[in-house]
Design a protein around this nucleic acid. Structure first.
Lengths: 146, 146
DNA sequence: TTGCGTGCAAAGGTTTTGCATGGCA
DNA sequence: TGCCATGCAAAACCTTTGCACGCAA
């Protein structure tokens, strides 16, 4: 059985993650910790993130390809269940939390036996601006920025 | 205005993609072309794939995590209408045509003013096999292979 | 003391880029 | 002829790994 050590570095990373309102990359974690005068090596950050993911404390998601993976604290209920809409015209990334999408997730799981990973999924298309549309009518939680 | 050249390499890549029943990586393209005695450098393959994606002829999908990205020929009639579910465990690609997804498309357009490009969108998650689930119950058109 | 955690540097893999050359239109 | 496309090698990029040392329990 493996013991889990409580080290200065692990705690610093965990604290930073729990304070981050959104997802961060390993690089950003390194920079932020350095700014706080608590530098941690990238290797350690990656190793720690791996363990935290295994322990179910954080979630890992890779939005793009080649781009850095993003990590996110799981206790922050808000950002757990949204989808990303990315405009192929202007590149804008919209975070969308909508009841309808939750239903879709449930439908695909129940009827098609596929478990969607909303964090890894990006829905591509054209945003309102690039379509020349302005109104939004949905009464659900809707889009939000971080 | 940019002209598109029709070169031996571009044609070879395009032909290989259109003959592939499923997604392939840049590496696999290189190997297959070499086997056919029509070697193309990896750099050219990546550059050509980029262009083909911009032109909307192929689709790029990446599991992330350092793994190679996969590319797939977009059959304009067939593959543009449905969504793709890709398993992040085993890599299986499921083509799903479901009424529910059409509704989702409509909802996002009507209520969030975002026009989904289903051909470019890949929904990531875990397939039934990798979740240990076997039943599928949806009465809609459902999954299909090409 | 035990053995996990850490830092550093180097290696791993995929993708991109610089530069000179080749080839389509 | 003009200029995009290609090949090669090197670079860029994110991430992992080997090794010796540090440190929590």
């Amino acid at each position: 059985m493996k013991r889990e050590y409580s080290t200065k570095q692990r705690n610093a990373i965990l604290e930073l993650l729990s304070e981050s309102s959104s997802h961060v990359t390993a690089q950003e974690i390194a920079e932020n910790l350095k700014k706080d005068g608590a530098s941690v090596s990238l290797a350690t950050i990656y190793r720690t993130l791996d363990k935290l993911e295994d322990e179910g404390i954080i979630k890992k998601m890779s939005i793009g390809n080649g781009a850095s993976a993003c990590y996110q604290y799981l206790d922050s209920m808000e950002c757990n269940k949204h989808f990303h809409l990315k405009c192929t015209e202007c590149g804008e990334l919209i975070h969308l939390s909508c009841e309808f999408l939750s239903e879709m997730e449930a439908h695909i799981f129940n009827e098609h036996a596929f478990t969607i990973s909303s964090g890894k999924t990006v829905i591509y298309g054209k945003c309102a601006k690039c379509c020349g549309i302005t109104e939004k009518k949905c009464t659900c939680e809707g889009e939000h920025k971080h």
